[in-house]
Design a protein around this nucleic acid. Structure first.
Lengths: 196, 196
DNA sequence: GACGTTCTATGCAGGTCTGTATAGAACGTG
DNA sequence: CACGTTCTATACAGACCTGCATAGAACGTC
């Protein structure tokens, strides 16, 4: 027995992609089926809770995926490099997709269509990312409160900049924000523990 | 002759409110009519271009409204106070609305449903806000490039934090971000022109 | 008071969306 | 091979949405 159905997985991955481009309300099951090639009959088999359940699963999947990328960037315990690398990843996403695709978790947070569980799943994803960032900052000597507030700034700044980039059809906002964030984080780390 | 119809104005204002809560795709003309009390027959009279035209008008209106609030906060030529005041305004919006309402311009930027003109209108609004901020920073002695990049950081940080607040049902992310932004902006201004 | 413009009333067509129901295939297990 | 579980096929109901068309009201102007 496969742990999870192939069609189900494909639907979730397609959902994440479509949410990024069109938002939740703007994405119908028909869109997901067409994009994933999943069979029509299996929608309410795999997601008996309907669109709400589907959106929650997509949010969890996307949260884990992006969280994995973030943890990868944080592996060297160098928060400045991690900020740059995480931002560069997003710049790649924006540029390769003609600025049509953003962050699926933001899309979920901004769209009120689905039930409260979906919003909560988005909040969980953000909290996890923030925590990952803060842990590394603390490890580099930044105080817990400051680390938390810096982590929130980095996340908010990058996510907000992605929105600006989409609206303006340019990656420049994110480039500028990444530079500023690198400076701020670098100063905080340097002020806590002298540079290696 | 009234410069613009009353029903038309009411529709636009209602649209801004509904976009903030439900996004663009999540808002139908039926919702707008119910919320505004505007007469059904006048939708395609006032907005012959349909939903695209309506969304563009809503975006322009919201961009001007929020831009006005931002310029008000910037009146004292004190960027640090302006950041705090602008963030406080958003905290008020979030708390008074149970974290259901965010920024309508973000909603437009993230939703791909309408045509490209709508996205562009959102980009124009962001650009105008950013310019307003940068102008005051330059006036306080910050170099042009730095001012621009700081302005982008402030805008991205606040808009991103609003999204986090909605997802987590708390204003704390925005409070943390506002504190960090005030510090960064304060340092930039102090470094350019000695404090009054 | 006739007229033109602006706005509103109402109905409808065509399409799409979610969600349900029912039946059939695929497939491993014994 | 009989069986149960998991998955898929298909049709459909009911609601909603956009956009159009046509007719009527309101109102200022001459």
């Amino acid at each position: 027995m496969p742990p999870t159905s192939d069609a189900r997985d494909r639907m979730i991955r397609s959902g994440a992609q479509l949410f990024r481009e069109r938002g939740v309300s703007g994405t119908s099951f028909a869109d997901v089926l067409e994009h994933s090639g999943a069979p029509r009959g299996s929608v309410y088999h795999h997601f008996p809770g309907g669109k709400d359940e589907f959106a929650i699963e997509v949010t969890r999947y996307a949260g884990g995926l992006i969280g994995g990328a973030l943890r990868g960037a944080l592996e060297g315990d160098d928060p400045v490099a991690a900020v740059r690398s995480f931002a560069d990843m997003w710049i790649g996403v924006l540029e390769s997709g003609e600025y049509a695709a953003g962050c699926p978790v933001v899309a979920v947070a901004v769209d009120a269509a689905p039930g409260p569980g979906t919003r909560a799943a988005a909040g969980d994803a953000f909290a996890a990312w923030e925590s990952d960032l803060a842990v590394v900052l603390v490890r580099r000597g930044v105080g817990e409160d400051r680390a938390r507030s810096l982590a929130t700034l980095v996340l908010s700044g990058i996510e907000g900049a992605i929105v600006l980039c989409r609206a303006q059809g340019s990656a420049e906002p994110l480039r500028r924000v990444a530079g500023e964030l690198a400076t701020v984080v670098g100063a905080a780390v340097a002020g806590s523990r002298p540079p290696a």
